[in-house]
Amino acid sequence: MMETGSEPLLEVHELDAFYGPAQALFNVSFKLARGEAVALVGRNGAGKTTTLKAIMGLIERRSRMSRYAGTDIRTSPTHRIARLGLGYVPEERRIFTDLTVAENLEVGRLPARSHRPPWTTTRLYKIFPNLGEMAGRSAGSMSGGEQQMLSIARTLMGNPDAVLLDEPSEGLAPLIVEQMAQAIVAMKNDGIAVLLSEQNLDFAASIVDRALSIETGAITFDGPIADLMQTRRHT
């Protein structure tokens, strides 16, 4: 559990992932430093979602090394990885539609672990005023954008040091996308590291500095997002 300032918060080395007999990720390696925001960009089916799921242990995975906050997470069960402070916001939002907004947040609640002030419903309702207004309503009655907000807020209730965000802008109206970007920047400013899976390069560039590009299950680029946008423009 030794932790030094220079050690990355999340480090993945040669990660493979499988859907049944089919291999979906090949030798994915990258690092995420404390408080850093990195985009994981790639086309539909390139392996963005798979990478995030494999890190969380939601699908069958194998790696040479996977560490989070100094702990080996290669074979850890999902809930233990989450309890180490690695938050996950899935692509399909996966909010509990049978529960109220407040109950959804309760499911995500974990004890505070860092020196940062813990997230509370009051604090979250300040960032996401919509949620505060709907606290007692069924989460299933919310719009797509509101559900996305709730999904992020629910993960924040676990007081994570890093969050894996899977395509938070997908299928949302431009105005909502902007709000989403602001919320993610607020998280980043709070010191939370972000790994943002994204198809929309412009959206990603408004939040992160560094980008990883993934194609057919393998990392093909790791560097400043500006460089990646440059290459994309030339091809």
Partner: peptide
């Protein structure tokens, strides 16, 4: 409703 998501929330 979704026990995998519950696990992903710790």
């Amino acid at each position: 409703q979704d026990r995998e998501m519950v696990a992903a929330l710790g």
